[in-house]
Design a protein around this nucleic acid. Structure first.
Lengths: 139, 139
DNA sequence: ATACCTGCAAAGTCTTTGCAATCAA
DNA sequence: TTGATTGCAAAGACTTTGCAGGTAT
């Protein structure tokens, strides 16, 4: 129980820091996302399944809404590895990904991999939003 | 007319080389894609619009089917720049992209940009499929 | 009290597919 | 001929949204 409370406390802290109300659904979702320390890559559907397993009372729509809100708040990063499927990454720091197209698994790559590249001039009137590298593999 | 026949001839050649029957619809689509020499980045919907403009008799389903077939045949490359929207690139050579999230425009980057990076070890039991770099910008 | 949040169902976007009619080889 | 292709409509996969009822502050 202490363990659970701990995760819930951290979840609440994260939500408040993001300016979001700490509802039961959000606390559960954020606990699942950040609960065990390791960074995670999940789709809304996957997180929804986990929430249901954990006997959580939450709808898929709320999972989508919450993940969108967390992304906007900067607590999650969206990863476009696969057209037609949004992955959310709890690691919002600078880094890149390996994507296994057979299993749908994402793996982090250290940001240093791009340390030595020189970006080309950007199109006139545009500003840089980010640089995403996806190493696609198959099992 | 000679111009049009020229493009049609090239389109037919490409289709045969890909092992696909040269139907009127495919010849039109391939002519639009490869007709003027420059490489293109288009979605199925965009190509469909162009075909309709050109008074072509083709359905959106056929555009999707054809682009899928061309991709499988190696004549097109899919670009995952935006979750929920597949771009097709007539340039199947090694290169990368700049993606303007405001306008949905893709611009090529020379492959040399990644010449000096060293990929991390791939997960056990996986083989490399490709490396995609997307420089995201906004207007 | 009140602005925010949830959940359901409906709508939306993009893509694929079943199947009868049609066409290329 | 005969298998490949087309087109329509329907189905699918994923995501967003309208709105009535519920909740955090």
């Amino acid at each position: 129980m202490a363990d659970h409370d701990d995760k819930a406390q951290r979840a609440i802290a994260l939500l408040e820091q993001a300016g979001l109300r700490a509802t039961a659904q959000r606390v559960l979702l954020v606990s699942l996302l950040y609960g065990d320390g390791a960074h995670r890559h999940v789709t809304a559907e996957q997180l929804y399944e986990e929430a249901v397993m954990a006997r959580g009372k939450v709808s898929l729509a709320t999972v989508y809404n919450t993940m969108r809100a967390l992304s906007k708040a900067g607590l999650l990063r969206q990863v476009n590895a696969d057209a037609g499927r949004i992955y959310f990454d709890t690691n919002t720091g600078d880094h890149q990904h390996i994507y296994d197209e057979s299993t749908g698994t994402l793996t982090d790559i250290d940001a240093a991999i791009l340390k030595d590249i020189t970006l080309p001039p950007l199109p006139r009137g545009t500003r840089l939003e980010g640089v995403d590298l996806i190493v696609r593999v198959r099992s």
